[in-house]
Measured scan of single mutants.
Amino acid sequence: YKIYPYDSLIVTNSISVKLPKDVDRTRLERHLSPEEFQEVFGMSIEEFDRLALWKRNDLKKKALLF
C-alpha cells in the first residue's frame, strides 16, 4: 500500500470526500506509515490485525478512517 499522511485519509460525513485515487477505500488504515499508525491507533499494525473485526471497525470509525 502507498503511504499517505493521516490528514489526507480521514473521512468526514461530507459527500465530497477527495481521497487519493489509488487508496483502498476499505482499508484506509493500511496507507498510514507505521509511526503514524501507532500514533492514531495506539498500537502496531500487527496488534491491530489480531483484534476482532468489530473492534477494528470501531477503532477505524473513531479515527475517521471508516
Score class of each variant (00 low, 15 high):
K2L: 10
A63T: 06
H31D: 01
L9Y: 00
E39T: 14
D22T: 05
P20N: 05
L9N: 00
V23A: 06
L9Q: 00
K18P: 13
I3G: 03
K61C: 09
K62F: 06
L64C: 12
W54T: 11
M43D: 00
L59N: 02
E29K: 01
T26C: 15
E39P: 03
Q38M: 13
G42L: 11
E35Q: 13
I10H: 04
K18E: 14
P20E: 05
E39R: 14
T12G: 13
N57R: 08
L19W: 09
L65C: 02
K62R: 11
N57K: 07
A52S: 14
D24V: 07
E46R: 09
R56N: 02
W54Q: 11
D58W: 13
V17T: 14
K55C: 11
S8Y: 14
E29N: 01
P34W: 09
V23H: 02
S8P: 00
L64P: 01
L51E: 06
E46P: 08
K55H: 12
I10V: 10
S14H: 13
D58V: 11
K18R: 13
E35T: 12
S44P: 14
F48W: 07
A52V: 09
W54N: 12
Y6G: 01
M43G: 01
R30G: 03
K55E: 15
I15P: 14
L51N: 04
Y1P: 15
L28G: 01
F66M: 10
E47N: 10
L19S: 06
Q38D: 10
E46C: 11
K21A: 15
P5D: 06
V40A: 05
F41Q: 00
D7P: 08
R56Q: 14
L28N: 01
S8R: 13
I10K: 15
L28V: 03
W54A: 11
I15W: 05
H31E: 00
R25E: 11
L19C: 06
A63L: 06
V11F: 09
S8E: 14
D7N: 14
D58I: 12
N13Y: 05
K61V: 09
T12M: 15
I45A: 08
F48E: 00
V23T: 05
L59M: 12
V40L: 07
F37W: 03
P5A: 08
K21G: 13
M43W: 03
R30A: 07
I15T: 15
K2P: 15
L53T: 09
L32Y: 01
L53P: 10
E36N: 06
E46I: 13
M43Q: 05
R50C: 11
K55S: 08
A52W: 07
K62S: 09
Q38W: 14
A63M: 07
V11S: 09
D24W: 04
H31S: 03
I45K: 07
L59E: 03
P20G: 06
